[in-house]
Structure formats: structure tokens, C-alpha cells
């Protein structure tokens, strides 16, 4: 798979010490990251590196699931974090940092999907199929799990964009409907509909696949 080796304006950058952040960054008090953003707004690259270290895994995961391709997901994550840096001076800590981050991320992913559609590229369905083989499972069960992952992945790729975004944020990233609504800049009742429709559509796909198998 193609891997982007250098950003357009890329330059080798020394590694800062890896931050040892205990626990899940997403459960940390929101003000910590808001304070970091205030430092980033003043051009503090170390604060930015801290934000990156805390949230890169979530952002890459979200983008990868959204576009259905690990390499593309990583490219998008790069764009998302650079946008975050550029937007820092305008950042208002009205929403929780993670919600705002997902808003930026969703925006990029939606635009990227439109770009992909314009280039008539297909969306990959590889990443959801990365189900590791559990040694306690029989080879048959492992194969079944991978097949199901493939069906869900293809189903996710076929969903309308906003349904996919709402479903991914809610199911995979664990956001509440209210947080999804903030990230998608819509109402909670709209999110309820989006998540419902996506879930019913995917359940239908799995059922159809089960009957055909």
C-alpha cells in the first residue's frame, strides 16, 4: 500500500520525548486540552505535540474508518492536525476539546470523500477487516469474524456520509448523541435519526449476508 513519505512542505523534524499520558486522553478533564490549545494559539509547538500525542490514535482511527483506507486515513489525520494548529488562534473553548477536534476531523473526512468521489475512486474496505485472530477461537470462527467485518466495512462505506459519520462517532468513538450533534453541527434528534438509519441499514446487510451464506 502506498505510504506518503513526505508532506508537501515537509522537513525532517526531531522527535520530542514521547509523553507518557496515563489513561485514556478522551476521559481527561476537558480544560487540560483547552489550555493546551491556548498555548498552541500563542505558537507553542510543544503544546501542539502534546495534543498530537494525546489524540493521534483516535483521529487516525476515525479517519481510517471513515474513508475505509489506512494510508488515506493517516494522510487525513495529518491534514486534520495541521488544520487544528492553524485554527488554534480562532479556537473558542465553548465545546469540549474532543468534540471540536471531531468536528474538524469530520469536516476533513467529508471533504476528502467528496474529493474521492470526484476522482471516481472507490473507497477501500480493508481496515474494518483487521480482526486479529484470537488463539482461543477455531479457524472457522476466525474466518467468520473476518467475513462479518468485511460485510460491515462494505456496509459502512455504502452509507450516506452523514450517517456514516454519526455512526462512526457514536459506535466506534463512543461519543454521546449530544457530542455527535456538536461534532456534526446538527441537532440531537437529527443524530438519533442518522444513527438509527445507519444501524438498521447495517443490520439488514448482515442479515442478508447471513441468509445468503
Amino acid at each position: 500500500m502506498a505510504r506518503r513519505t513526505l508532506a508537501p512542505s515537509g522537513r525532517n523534524f526531531p522527535r520530542a520525548p514521547v509523553l507518557n499520558v496515563p489513561g485514556n486522553a478522551m476521559n481527561a478533564p476537558p480544560d487540560e486540552d483547552c489550555a493546551r490549545m491556548a498555548r498552541v494559539a500563542r505558537g507553542d509547538t510543544r503544546a501542539f505535540a502534546e495534543l498530537f500525542d494525546r489524540h493521534q490514535a483516535s483521529v487516525v482511527r476515525f479517519a481510517t474508518r471513515f474513508v475505509g483506507d489506512a494510508a488515506r486515513g493517516e494522510e487525513l489525520a495529518q491534514d486534520i492536525f495541521v488544520s487544528l494548529f492553524r485554527a488554534a488562534p480562532r479556537y473558542q473553548p465553548t465545546a469540549r476539546f474532543k468534540t471540536w477536534l471531531y468536528r474538524v476531523a469530520t469536516h476533513h473526512c467529508l471533504n476528502a470523500r467528496r474529493g474521492l468521489a470526484a476522482r471516481a475512486s472507490s473507497v477501500g474496505s480493508e481496515p474494518l477487516a483487521h480482526v486479529p485472530a484470537d488463539p482461543s477461537h477455531s479457524p472457522h470462527a476466525v474466518a467468520e469474524g473476518r467475513e462479518l467485518a468485511g460485510v460491515l466495512s462494505a456496509g459502512l462505506a455504502a452509507l450516506p456520509e452523514r450517517e456514516r459519520a454519526a455512526f462512526t462517532l457514536s459506535r466506534f468513538e463512543g461519543l454521546s448523541y449530544r457530542e455527535v450533534a456538536e461534532a456534526l453541527e446538527t441537532s440531537e434528534s437529527a443524530v438519533k435519526s442518522l444513527v438509527h438509519r445507519a444501524t438498521v441499514a447495517l443490520a439488514g446487510r448482515v442479515e442478508t449476508h447471513g441468509r445468503a451464506a
Binding site: 506518503r4 513526505l6 508532506a7 508537501p8 515537509g10 523534524f13 522527535r15 509547538t45 501542539f48 505535540a49
Partner: peptide, 11 residues
């Protein structure tokens, strides 16, 4: 990824 993001931000 980290190096690329930090490089772009430095740019």
C-alpha cells in the same frame, strides 16, 4: 506521522 505533522506545522 508524528514527524510529518510536526514538520508541516513548523513550516
Amino acid at each position: 506521522l508524528r514527524a510529518r505533522v510536526l514538520a508541516e506545522v513548523a513550516g
